[in-house]
């Protein structure tokens, strides 16, 4: 197949139309897993056949926060930790939109931890994709709320002794309707989970474990990004429907992946409409009902 043939065929990367080409190559390090999650997300968008003008993406600050700048969708790069409040406002202001929050573990569970808890409690109709790389990548590898016990970081040079968050358990306990965890090694499953998350109504929480070769892996002498992927391959066990209590992560220990929770609960808007319809009867005009995603 010669070069001219290719030009005639107009072959381009299947994810190219989802990316702002003028901003590539991106700033993520060689071996960083965030790009792979973006790749999976682009494939999930292709599969979902959604009207892309009705998909909005909101990011916080951090390495993963850059995703909003690279995806060729309506996007907003919010202040640190405030991706979910912004997305909540966006969703309630325009219930037609499918709002995706794409951010990192530090942004969502530390600075924005309270917002995560309350959005899940209210069952706000958001799809939250949390890329967990166990550290604060952009600021130099400080201890994050997800850093496992025993891992060395710049602010814990003798190893971390703080108990980390078990994010799927947190989301489940707060009432998320869909909770899944996959690693960057499980690309097909991650893309499928993102597709299911895009189609699901309610608060969806997907945790994607990703290697951080520059800070987390190097501080802990775990090798390159690809070595971390091999670790994910070796040590991960797929248990769909596992009790989220038992899926906590330990330093280089076993990883339980899968779709943990998939249930139905009325979303915040549905609950509000139902409540006021009962209260005011015919006088009340339901908000954002005629639209919906489908």
């Amino acid at each position: 197949m010669s070069e001219t043939d290719l030009l005639e065929l107009e072959i381009e990367n299947p994810v190219a139309s989802y990316l702002r080409q003028e901003r590539l190559p991106h700033i993520w390090c060689p071996g960083c897993g965030i790009g792979t999650t973006v790749n999976c997300f682009a494939r999930a968008l292709t599969e979902s056949a959604m009207d892309l003008d009705r998909v909005a993406i909101v990011s916080g600050i951090g390495c993963t926060g850059r995703v909003a700048g690279y995806l060729n969708l309506d996007s907003f790069h919010t202040t640190h930790g405030r991706a979910i409040p912004f997305a909540t406002g966006l969703k309630l202001g325009n219930p037609d939109l499918k709002v995706v929050v794409y951010s990192g573990d530090g942004d969502l569970s530390a600075i924005g931890g309270n917002h995560l808890v309350h959005a899940a409690r209210r069952n706000m109709d958001l799809t939250v994709i949390c890329v967990n790389n166990f550290t604060y990548g952009m600021t130099g590898g400080q201890v994050a709320p997800t850093t496992p016990i025993g891992a060395t970081q710049t602010t814990m040079p003798y190893g971390n002794f703080e108990n980390p968050f078990n994010l799927p358990f947190l989301a489940d306990a707060c009432g998320a309707v869909y909770v899944a965890r996959w690693t960057v090694y499980h690309v097909k499953q991650l893309a499928k989970a993102m597709l299911e998350g895009l189609r699901k109504k309610g608060f969806v929480f997907i945790e994607a474990l990703a290697p951080c070769p520059t800070l987390y892996s190097r501080r802990n002498r775990l090798g390159d990004g690809v070595d971390q992927l091999k670790y994910y391959k070796e040590k991960s066990k797929i248990v769909n429907g596992a009790d989220t209590k038992d899926v906590g992560l330990t330093f280089q220990g076993d990883i339980v992946v899968g779709r943990f929770v998939d249930r139905e609960r009325p979303t915040w808007l549905d609950a509000m409409n139902e409540h006021y319809s009962q209260h005011f009867g015919e006088k009340y005009v339901p908000y954002g009902v005629s639209h919906g995603q489908d």
């Binding site: 990367n13 299947p14 994810v15 190219a16 990316l19 590539l24 190559p25 991106h26 993520w28 071996g31 960083c32 897993g33 965030i34 790009g35 792979t36 973006v38 790749n39 999976c40 494939r43 690309v187 097909k188 893309a191």
Partner: peptide, 13 residues
């Protein structure tokens, strides 16, 4: 196209 799915830099498909 599994290489395309893995690539973090959108460089291969």
């Amino acid at each position: 196209d599994l290489c395309g799915l893995y690539c973090p830099d959108f460089a291969i498909f």
